[in-house]
Structures are given as structure tokens and as C-alpha cells.
Amino acid sequence: MLTIGWLYPQLMNTYGDRGNIMILQRRCEWRGIGVEIKNLDLGFKIDDLRVCDLLFMGGAQDRQQKIVSEDLFKKADVLTRMIKDGTPGLYICGAYQFLGKYYKEANGTIIKGLGILDLYTENPGTNKPRLIGNVIIEIQDLRFKMYEEKNHKSSIVNRKSSALVGFENHGGRTYLGKGLKPLGKVLHGFGNNGKDKTEGVMYKNSFGTYLHGPILPKNPNFADLLIKCALEKKYKKSIELSLLDDSLEYRAHQAVLKKQNYHAWRF
């Protein structure tokens, strides 16, 4: 049984973000794992956050982001403790920026972040282009590899891609502090800032990224990693998820790789 907390579904839901929640929910259900989705909207009770085993938060327009930040600051202590404690979570785009120290708007205004992670984001101004397009990043973290061995024996699944694919659309450029690991290395697209080839951030079981699309449908191993982490943290033991037929998921994944002329990236 997992409780998935969706932070601000009404406000932080711009690029089909709810697809990520649907993926987590269905992939649990198909395996007989009970799921409860908690919608943590503006003014939610702090206890509703505390009981969550897995967190998700999406991106939004600036106006919505400002409304959310006021509310989220009131709950920052609990969220910080959960993230530092290893509660798994996926934070997309605006939510990812929130985890950092600050966001500097195009007009120079500084919006304070939650300061949970040592990173910051700056928008270089409206005369600089937004970073938009398909993204492919290479993952080195072995946790994403969870199924590879089995796969060689299984004919139904093809989980050999070591890439994550998605679509990015952001004005802000994010820079990671020295101690922080990116989620992946940019093979195609811009990533955190279009310069240093890093994309996203990994901290314990929390992941920040600019990839939407949404990210989880076309990268089911990422969805499963989040589910596995959540179950293992909750039940304090190692957990093996049963295999699902992901052939369609990987066809969609491959279609993006092919579109950008990357073929069969493997571990």
C-alpha cells in the first residue's frame, strides 16, 4: 500500500503533469499494490503531507508559482525533513526550481526557493531564448538498471535504454552546487542551463528535472524506481517489483531516440 502525495495538482499542472501520477497509480495497481493519491492543494493539512510515501510536484506558469510559494513556505520544514529523510519524490520544472535557493526572474526579481538543495536558477532575460525541444539524457545511476539482468531472459520487455527522454521548455537556467549530482548527462537538448551538459538533480531518493512529456510514461523504469524506493522505505526491506509488459512504452521511448538520431542506447 502506497500513499502518493501530489503537491498542488490544481496549480502546478501545466505540461500534462498528471500523466506522471496516472503512470505511478496504474503501475502499482497492475501489480496488486494498493495506492492512494492525496491531492495536496492550496491550504492542505500538514498531516496529509506527513503520511505520504512518495511525492510528486509539477510545473506551472509564473502567476501560479507565486501563489504556491506562499503556501509551500508554511510547510517547508516538514517537506525538507521528508526529502532529507529519503522520502522519494519527483519534482518537475517549476517544482525542481523551488527546491533550490532562489529563482531570479527575467526582470531581476529574486524569488526565494525552499533552499533544500544547493542549486539556483536564473532567467537571463526575455531577449535570451527559452530552452525548448526534445531532450535525451544518459543515466549512469545503477538504480535505473533494476531489470536489465532479467530482461535478457524475458522476451516481453525491452528495458535496455540507458536514456531518459522527454521535452523541455524553460526560461530559467539552473546551476548545481558542487556537492550535487545531476540526474543525467545531456545527449540531446539543453538540460539544466544549456552549457554544462547536466540535466536535473539527484539527492537521496528525490529527483528534480526539466523533462516533461510527461516523463514517466516513456521512461517506465524511472516510474518503477520511484515505486520501489517508496516501498522499500516504507517496509524497510528490499523489494523486487514484478515485470510488466512495457513494449509499447519502449516503442514510444525509441520513437524519440530515433527522431533525434540516437539508436539503441544501452547500459
Binding site: 499542472n13 505540461y15 500534462g16 498528471r18 500523466g19 525541444g133 526534445n134 521535452f167 510527461p214 520513437a255
Partner: peptide
């Protein structure tokens, strides 16, 4: 639009009641 993520914002529950759904296009798998 090059970004197809918007299809996840469409309400598709009603499609349970379709007879047949054929899907095509260069992002058919999505």
C-alpha cells in the same frame, strides 16, 4: 507543436465506450 505532452491533459475516460480506436501519426505510440 513539437511538444505532445498536452494529450495527457485531455479527458479520455469516455473512450472506454468506443467500438474501435485506430491510432496513427508520427507520435502514434505516445
Amino acid at each position: 507543436g513539437r511538444d505532445v505532452s498536452w494529450i495527457w491533459d485531455v479527458d479520455m475516460e469516455s473512450l472506454d465506450h468506443a467500438r474501435t480506436i485506430v491510432i496513427s501519426g508520427n507520435r502514434a505510440y505516445d
